[in-house]
Design a protein around this nucleic acid. Structure first.
Lengths: 188, 188
DNA sequence: ACCGGAAGTGTCAGTGACTGTCGATTCTTG
DNA sequence: CAAGAATCGACAGTCACTGACACTTCCGGT
């Protein structure tokens, strides 16, 4: 069993427990026992209990950064960011993975501690996207404005996600509407 | 001694220890001993070690929400948000409190755990401001767009804060420039 | 076949943030 | 002054996380 396989085994087992009992009510010992390993070994595969839930988010982040870097240089930053979000839109198109993501989101929202870790992960992600945007824009760009723009785009993404989870509203159109309303005047 | 007085006494003592030894390296036992109380009593005044640092942020949040609610109804949301940030700008105008805030920020950035709690607090703050904005806007406003706009404004605030802490750049002009660049086309 | 190290694991002990409980003290209020 | 409330310290317990050590397994080289 490769490391990656063990990790995803742990993650699937843990998620089932979290859904059944709640995040805070599930101890690491229980997860380890359910997987069939010691608590010590659990921490050899995940640096913290939080990471079991947030792990998938990290890989999504890498994908977004790669997409953003691959956008044509002439495109406005705002449009590039919107296009970089396409994998998320596509993911929400499939009812199965959307329901899975909604379950994960419920787990995250259910624990203040985990929710805080989640926000930190998003912050990291935004830093990566800002980096990609700055590389693409060259020396003429203002880092502060770029950072703020990425933050604004993420705010659109984040705000559009909630109604999608609660009602089964269409995510793509909602994101488009929100990003159109927030489009900076400078983005031409 | 009122509860409030004890809290600020704890906060001042703890901040000194955090600056001297670092956040993670300072135990709650040490803080309690320095103040002259038991660990148990420490937790009677603060729900967690994090809150000692983030406490001041909560009160700032209330002030921002109140300012936002008091803005004239005709003003565009973006301008209202910028004006709601005035207390922050003013606070950074005074070199003493700016240096204090920079020290706090260094403590926060030094601990991933604390940084996560900090982001959660900011998230709460944004929810409050969104609420205030929705009340003011009436039934015609899109909650998703409002939420995203508050997030965008906070992204400007957050992005403008870092250069102010590192170089002693002027915060007000930097914020104005960033918010002008990010100003939504819809805000007229 | 034998030996060497590298990698993965369990066990144990310890730290530190928090929480519940309980008995004692102090403070308030009638 | 007495009864009740608020406050506190002491103690024990839970849980996430970490370091240390010993053990097994699985290699390639000899």
């Amino acid at each position: 069993m490769s490391r990656r396989a063990v990790q995803s085994n742990i993650a699937r087992t843990a998620e089932a427990l979290f859904v059944a009992k709640g995040f805070e009510e599930t101890t690491v010992d229980e997860i380890a026992a359910a997987v069939g390993m010691s608590q010590r070994s659990f921490f050899r595969y995940f640096p913290s209990k939080d990471e079991v839930v947030l792990d998938s988010l990290a890989r999504l982040g890498e994908e977004l950064a790669a997409r953003l870097a691959a956008r044509p240089p002439g495109e406005s930053e705002w449009d590039s960011l919107r296009r970089a979000f396409d994998p998320v839109v596509e993911r929400f198109g499939d009812p199965v993975s959307r329901e899975h993501d909604a379950a994960i989101q419920r787990i995250i929202d259910g624990s203040p501690r985990l929710f805080a870790s989640y926000l930190r992960r998003l912050e990291h992600l935004q830093r990566d996207l800002t980096e990609a945007l700055l590389v693409r824009a060259g020396a003429g760009a203002d880092p502060v404005v770029m950072r703020a723009m990425v933050g604004g785009a993420f705010a659109c993404l984040h705000a559009s996600a909630f109604p999608t989870f609660e009602a089964s509203d269409e995510f793509g159109p909602c994101l488009d509407r929100t990003m159109a309303a927030l489009r900076p005047v400078a983005a031409r």
